[in-house]
Amino acid sequence: MIQALNNTLFRRLGDGVFVTMIASILAFLYLPVIVLIVFSFNDSSSLTLPLSGFTWKWYQSVFANEDLLRALRNSFYVASLATVLTLVIGVPAAFALDRLNFPGKTLFRRLVLLPLVLPGIITGISMLNLFKLMGFSLSLETVIIGHATALLSVVVTQVFARLQRLSRSYEEAAADLGARPWETFFLVILPNIRSAMIGSALLSFTLSFDEIPVTFFLTGRDNTLPMYIWSTMRRGLTPEINAVGTLIIAASLVLIVLSVSLLKADDER
């Protein structure tokens, strides 16, 4: 009897701990975000409590800020091209790693996957060295190459994982039915790794859009959005940054929903 009472008590206590635990972690993760959003609508230019009143003016000043808008365009340019490059290089790389045998394959794999675990600063300065040595001046294009190199590993790991799950017999069946290697690739392999490609492209785009360590070393006079925000931030904190941040979070949300539904589509197949 007492044992049973003890057990229920223990379970109640456990449940309480459990709910508190989850709630506090979620609070740790999301209260700051809420603070960010709330202050983007706060009337005062200082980020202090109590709140002083509702305003849209920070958003208005964001959309009137030429420098910021240019940085935003630059970021789109960089992230789009970097993503295309990661796919163009990454998909064949994943394919080669999974389906081909060639000398130096282990070294190749290690090289390509290294940026996944290495701090961005290493990729940043190593490519800075290269560009300086080759006499390239730094520009958005050098940033694109840097991002593509750093994010190649994202596409390679995702596509490689998908390829591994894709039975070899599909390729054999295609070849058996008269498909040349390139037909097999475009008609059979590509459609079956499509969702992994789109998923990793989305991730690649987001990460590139958000990248600082590599950009920091490789950019010339043009700024990407995070670099612009960062430089403003170091000058001082303004609610305008909160407004930009809120917009970025909204955009991220869209991307999350998109990628989750993509993954689901993959699971259902």
Binding site: P226, L237, I241
Partner: peptide, 25 residues
Amino acid sequence: VIAPLWVSYLLRAYIWKTILGSEGV
């Protein structure tokens, strides 16, 4: 828990600057 990964790294660092600063939240 995973979603914040998609939200700008810089923002996540910035948020704490606004929260913890002596002029902060």
